[in-house]
Simulated scan of single mutants.
Amino acid sequence: MMHFAKKLVLAGTFIGLFATPTLAAQCGNDAGGFNAWKSAFAAEAKKAGVKQRGLDALASAQYATGTIKADRNQKSFKYTLDKFMKVRGSATIISQGRKRKASNAGLFNALEKQYGVPAGVLLAIHGMETGFGGFMGSSKIVSAITTLAYDCRRSDFFVPHAVGALMLVDQGSITSNTKGAKHGELGHTQFLPGNALRYGVDGNGDGRVDLYNQTDAMASTANFLRKKGWKPGQGYQEGQPNFKVIKQWNAATVYQQAIAIMGAKIDG
């Protein structure tokens, strides 16, 4: 029997403090100011509720050159839909998604009953993000996300996720050495840390939220989509009510389209 009730608690100060950041920490465009930024940011993180374990993780974070390189070279926004589907291996994702849906029918039926999100959408995301858990990233999450919070390009966007990552360390969900994607995403479906903190749920009923556990990750992904406005029983192709919710998952239009197309084929 599946359990989907327990949510990872979001610290009450998290959203309010960082909705419109006014940080003393100065952003930068290279590694030169990172250590000074960390010192200033530590004070802001502490005000937001980050405890000692999280602050220690911040202190040990290193400037992630690979993350900056990846952030400057995001190709998905440049691909046509056909090119994107080919690069992502859509045929394999659809085939494997159908098999996984059939072999885990109880899980996906329970998720759809609880959240209203069909299996195809969850499996399309799972397949595209990590090849169904085959590769969940090789970058240290805390270093990656704090580097992006420091970087001037999109500092305001990543600051709340940096705080989220430090809170996840405080809670024992991750450590300073836990690895994820280049932009600090974690787990089977690559949640940004702030979203993991806010939308993560305990899907398998073991009393903790672990996005490296497939059941927790699937439940958390469904919870994210439902909280973003998913309408149970409504369509999710372009022009249908739930497509705008898929847009909340990834900013690239081709990525959104691919989720919808592959999800329908998996569900079909």
Rank of each mutant, 00 (worst) to 15 (best):
V159S: 12
A19M: 11
F243I: 02
I261K: 15
S176D: 15
R208Y: 07
R100W: 01
K46W: 02
K47T: 13
Q214W: 07
V159Y: 02
S176I: 04
S39I: 10
A45R: 00
G66E: 12
R98H: 01
A258K: 10
V169D: 04
W249T: 09
L211M: 06
E185M: 00
A25K: 08
Q240M: 02
F14D: 00
C27P: 11
A5Q: 07
Q62C: 07
Y255P: 09
N29E: 14
A119M: 05
S173R: 15
K179A: 02
T13C: 05
G32V: 03
T80I: 03
G106P: 06
V254F: 04
V121E: 07
F77A: 14
D151Y: 14
K7Q: 13
A264E: 05
N195Y: 09
I174S: 10
G16L: 02
F77R: 13
D71R: 07
K38P: 09
N29Q: 14
A61L: 01
K86H: 14
Q237A: 15
Y63F: 13
I15D: 11
A219M: 07
N250P: 03
R88C: 06
N213Y: 03
A64E: 10
Q74P: 11
T130N: 02
M218A: 01
H161E: 08
V121D: 04
K47P: 05
D56W: 00
Q74M: 06
G229F: 10
K47Y: 10
A5H: 04
D56K: 13
S176Q: 13
H161R: 02
I15E: 12
Q74T: 00
V9T: 13
N35P: 01
I261G: 10
A119Q: 06
F18P: 04
K38Q: 14
A91M: 01
C27F: 03
H126C: 13
K231L: 13
A5L: 11
A149C: 09
K51E: 15
K265S: 12
K99F: 05
D30R: 14
G49I: 08
Q190R: 14
T221A: 15
L186I: 05
L81S: 11
P21C: 01
F135G: 10
T253D: 12
G233E: 02
F108H: 07
V169T: 12
